[in-house]
Amino acid sequence: MKSINLGWTLGVLSKNIGLKSLTLLLTFLVFGIFSCNSKNSKDQEIVILDNIPVLELTPKTIEFPKTYVCEIQAVQFVEIRAKVEGFVDRIYVDEGQFVKKGQILFQLSSLEFTEMVNSANAKLSQAKAEAQAATLEMERLRILVEKDIISPSELQLAKSKKEVAESGIAEAEAMLKNAKTGLSYTTIRAPFDGIVDRFPKKSGALVTSGDLLTNITDINEVFAYFKVTENEYLTYMRAKMEGEELISNPDVTLILSDGEVFEYTGKLETLEADFERGTGSIAFRVRFPNPDQLIKHGASGKIQLSNQLENVFLVPQKSTFEIQDYSYVYILDKDNQVKVRSFKPVQRYGVYYIAEGFEEGDRIIYEGIQQVKDGVFVSPAMVSEKEAYDTLSTSL
């Protein structure tokens, strides 16, 4: 194409049509050029995507389970320890055996303590005899004083000897009581109905005071302790003070270590007094009946609570994306223009996020978020709530 000399062309035109006409012609030419450019720019900015699946959000009341790792303990758990030194003469029960309250478990050697009891009995008899002799002597001296044969001071001395002899009886009785108590410690009995644990000391072993002989547990009922965060604790306590039930179902479910749900439900009873320094958590206690004694002391499991949230929205996870720990969705305005919207999930619920902060009727891009971006326009293909949730419900 040949180039055109604009100065030459304008000069020719000015000679033929005049300067005024040329100015008017250039004005229309410039206006036409800018109009074309403006139209092309608008055509480039407006992008309409067809048949983009869109879901309209509606508020819901959600009841969902939340699980916590728990530690299980027997309602009663006692360490059976020797109170005196001696040899294990006999073991009357076997490991893992159920025993009744007062049943004999162990017998320690008792010869030494039997001799101590016999010695204490002898001293008690001696003290009683001395007291009786002192009493007779005092009565004899009383008669002599009454007849003015001896002075009253002699009678007073006899009374003092009698009191000393009587105090000797009290001392001998205390010694006998201690000896009998020591002897009773050689026979070790069950403090309550329960199951005995392993025996670290076998028959014939020497034990000293404080040595562990076994444990005994009552597991007709068990406690399950689970820890919650400080925020969860505050939420629970505020709801309780306002007379609300944060937990919709007062019966608590226990999931055993094999994944099976325990047959019996428990009751939330109480909580610890202080927060744990290292984790900032606090433990709640749940009591479970255990009539079949399936659960043992020290077992593990998970506590499952049914929590209820009102006026929340279910946002499919596939409709969201994350950037630097923030969650986003694409939301449509009234003109069907896409806007990016951030939100903070309250809880995962299967393949959904439970979210707050949306309004009823808000529309989000349900599928194809990779095709859209902030500012584009779409032609929505509305997806019914039932269709969307039924499609995803199999993943719950």
Rank of each mutant, 00 (worst) to 15 (best):
Y330Q: 00
T265R: 13
M237T: 10
K267F: 14
Q304G: 13
V261D: 04
E260G: 07
R238L: 08
A283V: 01
G280C: 05
T279Y: 06
S257R: 10
F288C: 00
S327Y: 15
R285N: 15
E245Q: 10
A299C: 09
D333F: 02
Q293G: 06
F284D: 00
S319W: 07
E242Y: 03
N249T: 11
K296T: 13
N336W: 03
E260V: 09
K334M: 14
V329I: 05
N307L: 12
P291L: 03
L314K: 15
N311Q: 00
E310P: 01
L254T: 02
K296F: 12
A299S: 11
I255H: 01
R277E: 12
G278C: 01
L294Y: 06
S327V: 11
A299Y: 11
T253H: 04
Q324P: 01
L294H: 02
T320W: 01
V340M: 13
S257W: 08
E263N: 14
M237K: 12
P316C: 14
K240M: 09
K267Q: 15
G243F: 07
V252E: 09
E272I: 03
I247F: 09
F262W: 02
T320C: 15
K302Q: 15
E310Q: 05
S281E: 15
S281V: 05
T320F: 07
T270D: 15
Y236H: 08
L268W: 14
V315C: 04
E245I: 04
K334R: 14
A299N: 12
K334A: 14
P250N: 13
K318R: 11
T279F: 07
L332N: 02
G301I: 08
A283T: 01
